[in-house]
């Protein structure tokens, strides 16, 4: 099962980065959202896959049933999902504000920090 998910993860990453390499804010945002899923799936798969049985202990038992899923990557991913969502929201608002303030959604046109006609470092003492 893992090889199939490995291919899927590869596709997720490729799609995400293809979108991120675009110059348009919206496509970059979509790419970031997909990248979050790609990373989560990567961690999930690296922790090995087991079908259906969740890591939950039955009322009359002291350990999860045999063949239960690996709990550790799930714990890591659960918080990661929430955090990546909050960062996605932050990025969304940031992009929105950048568009409002700079009047463009093309990252090539956002040259406030790195002006096109850069005079270079100061010379002399």
């Amino acid at each position: 099962m893992e090889p199939a998910l490995a291919v899927l993860v590869g596709l997720f990453f490729a799609t995400a980065f293809y979108l991120i390499l675009s110059k348009k804010l919206i496509r970059i945002l979509l790419g970031v959202a997909i990248m979050g899923n790609a990373v989560n799936l990567l961690i999930f798969t690296a922790g090995r896959l087991t079908r259906e049985v969740p890591p939950i202990i039955a009322l009359d038992a002291y350990t999860p049933p045999a063949g239960a899923a690996n709990a550790l990557p799930q714990a890591l991913i659960l918080t990661a999902i929430v955090i990546s969502f909050s960062f996605f929201a932050f990025l969304l608002v940031l992009a929105f504000r950048a568009y409002q303030d700079l009047g463009t959604d093309d990252t090539d046109a956002m040259r406030v920090a790195e002006p096109v006609a850069d005079a270079g470092p100061p010379q002399g003492y």
Partner: peptide, 11 residues
């Protein structure tokens, strides 16, 4: 004890 928790509930 069952699926759930603060993160999910909060969402």
């Amino acid at each position: 004890n069952e699926p759930g928790g603060g993160f999910i509930g909060g969402l």
